[in-house]
């Protein structure tokens, strides 16, 4: 009985006419943009005016080599007197895949970090992660913005999504460089995870 009614019920899920018209317009705008970019050898495109939840351009960086072997290691942090004051995790570049997602008109750049080996330390133990240090450079390499510390994001399914404010950045092509994440676990010291990640994005 339920399966007979399923078709009837599901067929009532429909798009509004406004949404259809919006899609048609956006596709047509994209056609114009593609024709314009055709002679410029671009291999990425910007999404047109957003729908209710905007579309985004997304770029990823997965370390300098596409290797699944773990290259990172724990390192003690010493104070000037030589005492161990903490631990950091070094050379994590190839263990975390970083993607950025920017939506036209948005004030934030979404940065997702995916742990390529989520079942090993330190990644399997993390409850939250945040970006400790980042820089944004323009196409000429000039430093546009710099930041230390984003809101911690909950780790779920081997990754997390963080936000970097970009409201003040003018339209153009940029590069986000991240040199450090901070991973946290309840009732434990924050862990600095160091490496180098770089992603391009366009505002």
């Amino acid at each position: 009985m339920e399966l007979q009614n399923l078709k009837t019920a599901v067929e009532k899920i429909k798009m509004t006419d406004d949404a259809k018209q919006s899609i048609v317009r956006n596709c047509q705008t994209e056609t114009v943009r593609e024709r314009h970019n055709a002679g410029h050898n671009r291999n990425r495109f910007r999404k047109p005016v957003k729908l209710a939840a905007a579309l985004a351009v997304c770029f990823c960086f997965a370390g300098t080599m596409a290797s699944a072997d773990q290259a990172g290691f724990f390192q003690d942090i010493h104070n000037l007197a030589g005492a161990i004051t903490g631990t950091s995790y070094e050379q994590a570049s190839e263990e975390i895949e970083v993607c950025v997602e920017y939506t036209q008109g948005s004030d934030v750049l979404y940065v997702s970090a995916v742990f390529l080996k989520p079942d090993v330390a330190p990644y399997r133990e993390l409850d939250t992660v945040s970006i400790s240090e980042y820089e944004i450079l323009d196409a000429s390499g000039k430093l546009i913005a710099k930041g230390k510390g984003t809101e911690p994001a909950v780790v779920q399914n081997g990754g997390a999504v963080m936000e970097i404010p970009v409201a003040h950045i003018k339209p153009g092509d940029y590069v986000l460089e991240i040199s450090s994440f901070t991973g946290e676990k309840k009732a434990d010291q924050p862990l600095q995870i160091n490496g180098f990640w770089m992603c391009e994005f366009t505002v």
Binding site: V10, I13, M15, A19, S22, L51, A52, A53, L55
Partner: peptide, 22 residues
């Protein structure tokens, strides 16, 4: 409509489904 239905079933939200159709 057909694509929207299937996308809605997979994604659970109208806005996400509209994105996917676009």
């Amino acid at each position: 409509d057909r694509l929207f239905r299937l996308c809605f079933i997979m994604l659970g939200s109208r806005a996400d489904a509209e994105d996917a159709v676009q």
